[in-house]
Design a protein around this nucleic acid. Structure first.
Lengths: 125, 125
DNA sequence: TCTATATTTGAACAAATGTTCAAATAATCA
DNA sequence: TGATTATTTGAACATTTGTTCAAATATAGA
């Protein structure tokens, strides 16, 4: 079945409503940027670490068991997407989360997934 | 600089604390699965639509301007990761969000990004 | 200036991802 | 049973992504 066919199973009004109320592309873009930034294990660990403490590139690399080069590449992505900011102190550049609400969002998801995991464990018992 | 070197710029205690308190891999995995699921524009639109209404594959395809095949492939990912569930009604399979808290999390991020966007627009004025 | 340390960058590469197309499976109804 | 509709699947393909390595840049101090 191709695009823009209207099979019987479809409630066209419902679909039109959903399309009309869909978020702006600019907001969708910001959201997918944020989510895909956090959708990589190393970057997520970096962001979690940075939500707790200001860290330089070397410290981040040690924290997530990676190299300074890989971490620096990842930091660029996080910087470009406005998730982290940096300040320079001499030779060292310190990174932090740019927005407190990212930490809050992380806390909510951590809580969510922890509950998920526990209920899975209960099911197994 | 290679892994496990300890350059002068590093506060080893801080790094060790962060490593010790890092989340379990199982939770990190659940989180990256959730985030990367939402880190694709079509899937995010699908999830947003499903947060508002139960929908069949065709309706989803129409809503996000895609094909039933592409949507079905994406739904499998969302199903495998526990983000959506389905019920069958005759020939039609209806999908919904599996957890109310995903909608809540989305609302928080939508709010967050909307505020971001507005403040950017104010800066430009 | 020369050296050391910290960080960034670009190119190459492998791995993962998303779409397409055609074919398969499921369910309903005549 | 055969025809129709809805959904899923697998293989092929192009694109994107993340890491590595070597080289470049930035800063501080001798």
């Amino acid at each position: 079945m191709e695009k823009h066919d209207y099979p019987e199973c479809c409630d066209i009004n419902k679909v039109e409503q959903l399309k009309k109320n869909m978020l702006d592309n600019s907001i969708l873009q910001l959201m997918t940027d944020l989510f895909s930034s956090l959708g990589d294990e190393n970057r997520l660990k970096m962001v979690i670490a940075l939500s707790k403490s200001e860290l330089c590139v070397h410290e981040l690399a040690l924290t997530v068991d990676s190299t300074t080069s890989a971490v620096s590449h990842q930091l660029r992505k996080l910087r470009d997407r406005g998730i982290v900011t940096s300040r320079r102190d001499g030779q060292v550049k310190y990174y932090t989360l740019s927005d407190e609400r990212i930490r809050q969002m992380l806390d909510i998801v951590i809580d969510f997934e922890s509950v998920q995991k526990e209920s899975e464990m209960v099911e197994k018992v």
